[in-house]
Simulated assay, not measured.
Amino acid sequence: MSKRIDVHDLNIYYGDFLAVEGVNINIEPKSVTAFIGPSGCGKSTFLRTLNRMHEVIPRAYVKGQVMLDGDDLYGPGVDPVAVRSHVGMVFQRPNPFPTMSIKDNVLAGVKLNGRKISKSDADALAEQSLRGANLWNEVKDRLNKPGSGLSGGQQQRLCIARAIAVKPDVLLMDEPCSALDPISTLAIEDLIEELKENYTVVIVTHNMQQAARVSDKTAFFNIAGTGKPGHLIEYDDTTTIFNNPKDKQTEDYVSGRFG
């Protein structure tokens, strides 16, 4: 588990519109990388290219390479569904399946991938995944109750448990705390710190304090104006980005002059 991502000259399109231009980035395994930048600069769009979710949108496509330990995710014959089993994703709002139990929510991805699994193995995997998401002790006595009955923060951790149950190499998180209260946010941030021991974690956040707290490296994206493509402006160790950025755009953003 935990693989390196290398992106080369990536251009991201919605039909004829070039949304993000010329991204080159290397993301280290067993680390947390944060994407920051103003709304509309392409950071979430870029995140979705890392597991081929972008092309789910009609007429959306990319040009360039996204390499996972040297394998091009956009190479000929590569199955997007297989890519998503290696590169999991947690979305902005918790989205447990409302009619499913907590346990069935955790195992949903495994079953959708067509894996046959015995009841004892399913029980063990559900417990392992819920422990991995720091949720086991809170739900172990109500595994057969609906996942929708959990609090917002618990639902988000349930979604993380569901993502890691399929044993991905990379975990993408698109603003995972934006809909949560401060206590739930702290729980997710603590969990992110633990997850990097086993996974490559990439997080989009509008909260710069959060990026500073949880990430090892930070990528700053920006956009020149409406209708222009987003660009990766600067990518470095998080302490450098926030304390000694090389580009004035980065300095202006992290110091609160715009955004």
Rank of each mutant, 00 (worst) to 15 (best):
L143R: 02
L143F: 01
L143G: 10
N144F: 03
N144R: 06
N144H: 12
N144G: 11
N144T: 13
N144W: 02
N144K: 03
K145M: 08
K145R: 15
K145S: 14
K145Q: 15
P146A: 00
P146C: 00
P146I: 01
P146L: 00
G147K: 03
G147A: 08
S148C: 09
S148Y: 01
S148I: 14
S148T: 11
G149K: 00
L150A: 06
L150W: 01
S151P: 12
G152V: 13
G152A: 05
G152E: 05
G152H: 04
G152D: 06
G153M: 09
G153P: 09
Q154V: 04
Q154H: 05
Q154G: 08
Q154K: 04
Q155M: 15
Q155N: 08
Q155T: 05
Q155S: 09
Q156S: 05
Q156M: 12
R157T: 10
R157M: 07
R157Y: 03
R157A: 02
L158C: 05
L158F: 05
C159M: 05
C159V: 01
C159K: 09
C159H: 06
C159G: 14
I160K: 07
I160G: 01
I160Y: 10
I160E: 05
I160R: 10
I160T: 02
A161W: 13
A161T: 10
R162Q: 15
R162C: 01
R162M: 10
A163I: 05
A163L: 02
A163N: 09
I164A: 01
I164P: 12
I164T: 10
A165M: 08
A165S: 15
V166Q: 15
V166D: 09
K167S: 15
K167I: 06
K167W: 09
K167A: 10
K167C: 07
K167G: 03
P168A: 02
P168I: 03
D169Q: 15
D169E: 15
D169R: 14
D169V: 00
V170S: 13
V170E: 14
V170K: 13
V170H: 14
V170W: 11
L171S: 01
L172H: 14
L172K: 00
L172S: 05
L172M: 09
L172T: 09
